[in-house]
Computed example of a mutant assay.
Amino acid sequence: MARVELDGVRKVYPNGHVGVAGATFEVADGELLVLVGPSGCGKSTLLRMIAGLETISAGTLRIGDRVVNDVAPRDRDIAMVFQSYALYPHMSVADNLGFGLKLRGHDRASVDARVREAAKTLELDALLDRKPGQLSGGQRQRVALGRALVRSPQVFLLDEPLSNLDAKLRMSMRVEIARLHRQLGATMVYVTHDQIEAMTLGQRIVVLDRGEIQQIDTPMALYERPVNLFVATFLGSPAMNVLRGRLLRADGWSLLLDDGGRVALGEAALDAGLDGREVALGIRPEHLQRAEGSGFAPVVEVVEPVGSDVFVNLRHGALPLIARLPPGELPTPGSTLPLRVEARHAHLFDAESGARIEA
């Protein structure tokens, strides 16, 4: 396996559109790194530049100790798994797994040995004689992974490989990929728009928006200390609530909302210089707690009990909110629900730039 190093890598299209604006980061040898962001943020473009399927406009890309900017895809020693399984329907699973090796001139004994090894790793042993049409979606995705696995590449590149699967299969395949990575110790770069996939799979995550890297860190570091409002609201399910207003320091801190409402922050340990500052206050749904007499009582719109949690969708004036509460007596739609903000869990961001305020 090998590390992947990007230094100022850019992609600018002929029409002037900047697909990726100067990406600089390193994927360590054996690391599973996830590129995540909304559609059009540049994550797949970045992956395709690593693969050699997109030309690099500027910057340097290294795989191992070799600069590969101008190296053909087949000579980069990478294997790519696409969103589409792209299996040959007339070939058996065994032939699909071994086809790429045959094209590269490997002898039959070597191909058979590698196919059997990959099939055992992915629990495809009993399916080797079947055609793709006889397989489930999860089994076909495992064959697509196995086709990359048999090549023993330096780097695995996975471009939204689970997006065609249903929710249950996606969950099981996430476990499958995590197990495979741990077993192989392989260097993997994984692209997804699904923040749950990113949080559960990535050892580190690169968050992108409009071609620019917003933050690179471990999943929990991103969740607990997002560098800006975009990262804060993109990661987390349900998404972070955002309250906009002005901080006031009088008998404890409070946030005077834009609509004139007030949210008490109690004895929040904030810098005195923030008094009167316009901010966006982020609070995750699990940190909105029931509190009688709080003075902050949004109206309940929809109640979603999901077993271990209850998601309560609320509205305070024009502001939508969601609280994650423990199961128990459920609030009634149309009623008000007094809430308090757990100030120690609140995140402050600049009202204009969205940058995190270290308070």
Rank of each mutant, 00 (worst) to 15 (best):
L6V: 05
G8M: 10
K11D: 15
N15G: 09
N15C: 14
H17V: 15
G19H: 06
L32Y: 09
L35A: 13
P38C: 12
S39P: 06
G40Y: 09
G40M: 14
C41H: 10
G42E: 09
K43I: 02
S44Y: 08
L47K: 05
A51R: 02
G64W: 15
D65S: 13
V68N: 11
N69M: 01
D77M: 02
I78C: 06
V81R: 00
Q83N: 01
Y85F: 14
Y88K: 09
N96F: 07
L97C: 06
F99Y: 12
F99W: 12
G105W: 05
R108F: 11
R114E: 09
T121M: 12
L124G: 05
L124R: 08
A126Q: 03
R130A: 13
P132Q: 10
G133P: 10
Q134H: 08
V143A: 10
A144I: 09
G146D: 06
R147E: 09
A148I: 06
L149Y: 00
V150L: 05
P153L: 11
S163H: 07
L165F: 00
A167I: 05
M171A: 12
V175Q: 04
V175H: 05
I177D: 01
L180V: 04
R182W: 03
R182G: 10
T187Q: 07
M188Q: 11
V189T: 09
Q195D: 11
I196H: 04
I196V: 12
T200H: 05
T200D: 03
L201F: 15
L201D: 11
G202V: 04
Q203F: 14
V206K: 14
R210V: 15
R210T: 14
E212L: 15
D217T: 05
P219N: 08
M220K: 11
E224Y: 08
R225M: 15
N228L: 01
N228E: 04
N228W: 10
L229W: 04
F230Y: 08
F234L: 09
L235P: 03
L235A: 09
G236P: 07
A239P: 15
L248T: 12
A250L: 13
D251V: 13
G261N: 00
L265I: 01
E267Y: 06
E267Q: 13
L270R: 01
D271S: 15
E278L: 12
G282I: 01
I283V: 03
I283S: 08
P285R: 00
H287V: 02
A291T: 13
F296Y: 03
E301S: 03
E301C: 12
E304K: 04
P305F: 09
G307C: 00
F311K: 06
L314C: 02
R315V: 08
P326Y: 03
P327W: 03
T336K: 03
T336V: 11
T336I: 06
P338T: 09
L339R: 00
E342A: 11
A343S: 14
R344Y: 10
H347V: 02
H347F: 05
F349Q: 02
A351W: 04
E352S: 12
G354E: 01
R356G: 13
